[in-house]
Design a binder for these strands. Sequence first.
DNA 1: GCCGTTTTCGGCCCGACTGTTTTCAGTCG
Length: 574
Amino acid sequence: MSDLNKKDIIDLLERIAVYLEIKGENAFRVSAYRKAAQALERDERSMAEIDDPSKLSGIGKGTAGIINDFLSTGTTALLDELEEEIPSGLLPLLKLPGLGGKKIGKLYQELGVEDAASLKHACEVNEVQNLAGFGKKTEEKILTAVNEMGKRPDRLALPHVTAAVDDLYEFLTGIPDIVRFELAGSFRRGRETVKDLDFILSTKAPEKVGETLVNHPRVTEVIGHGDTKVSVELTFGETIVPVDFRMVEDESFATMLHHFTGSKDHNVLMRQIAKARGESISEYGVKDEASGDVRHFETETDFFAHFDLPWIPPEVREGKHEIDDAPETEGLITLADMQGDLHMHTTWSDGAQSIDDMIDACRKKKYSFMAITDHSKYLQVANGLSVERLKRQHEEIRETRGKLTDIQVFTGIEMDILPDGSLDYDDDVLSTIDFVIASIHSSFSQDEETMMKRMEAACRNPHVAMIAHPTGRLIGRRDGYAVNLDRLIDLAVETNTILEINANPNRLDLSASWAEKAQERGALISINTDAHRYEMLEHLPYGVRNARRGWLRKDTVVNTWSGERLLDHLWKNR
DNA sequence: GCCGTTTTCGGCCCGACTGTTTTCAGTCG
């Protein structure tokens, strides 16, 4: 038996699809392998728990046989043949813009291109432009793309696109010919990273608006400029942000918004539903196939209602179970449910504002509770609190909160879990604090066993209420430490310890999929900003969107509780 | 390759844009 897990199987199926694509195989056969991979991904179970893959919709006898080959031998005859036949150096070329399987197949068969280097050479000696279906412009574009290969990240973390988002909102608002506009795409779905920004705008003067768009002062490259679509690249400092604008008549705005919010897989599901009813969905509306009439909708809600569905939130439109479980989406947590923020810093450690400033900022946000959680003494670089300073700070907090009637201010601490698994304060200190957070800021490279001993020590301490940013990842920059999240979730459930969704857009930690698993197994979650300045309190929506992507219900998230219920929870089990 | 409350064969989501053509294939989302 090989020890392949589900992720490996999915990768192997996708590998087959890519090879077949380059081979010029029937597109439906290619997509059959991709669909099989998706079917596995959609299923919650592990490979060991799936006794017969062909029972999954999208996997037939053929692919099931291949999956079983993989499981028993680690490979399969089809993949072996493909690897024999096609150079693996061609696979990364599919990522180049403008190159798909067909063109790569042609480059391979007619010019002997085998990888990026030989493709570059073929362009330089002008062999590419003479191929049928290619030309001078195509050759130039390919050469540029090959030279750019690997220089730019595939996807941008959210903090890298916020400047562009803010700028474009202002810019589009100032264009009088635009009736309404909205940001769609993976940004609207709350993904952790985005490839580009997709703006939908309705206008009666697409030509004029398109001209205005390509002349935006930040535009450094026009990728495409058609009647209804404009693709450009905007440059903000070091970051190049690709942006697509789609222009449409206002009557099609809702369907266009739905279409370009995606995901692609979600759209496929919706179109299959339409097809079964004798209708077809496009970005322009819903067509009745019998009469040819096209129906338009004022809002997305109307569009979904036409298919007897409630409005499905963008965050869960991933082509998974959002159609089947559509009624459940009405119970998902919303930003309006959030009653407070339980993780923030002040000038007492490494924050930029005083306790009073942070309290004022939270009162302005109409929170009913908050916790001040500065760093503990181990974290000297962050001016962590000695026991003596901690006591003074908490005295100050108690004094201040006594005068307030509109917000409950909890005493708190973000306490380090030390490399040896001990905690930074003794129990007699911790026993005086309302909200004790435990987190790891040191010895990131320890092995899983050592790391989990640290986590377990924190969870088992009766005073620890929450584990902050459980994996320590920084999106696009640093993988998390070696945490066994399955085990951590079990520990959290067993010891009644809350797990955090850190709302900082660089973290989003836990991720949506782990938060979903945590909820399924009965863990409690808290969404917090970890603000070090009051502007960072505004990060909360990122955390809520992330939680919605994980299908979190309001009651799973302790920030939605009343202050009394939360305090009771924090104190009753010590 | 998968699938079937009209089908075991003939479909498989739909449309824009580009560059190559001179009516369209390939790519992309």
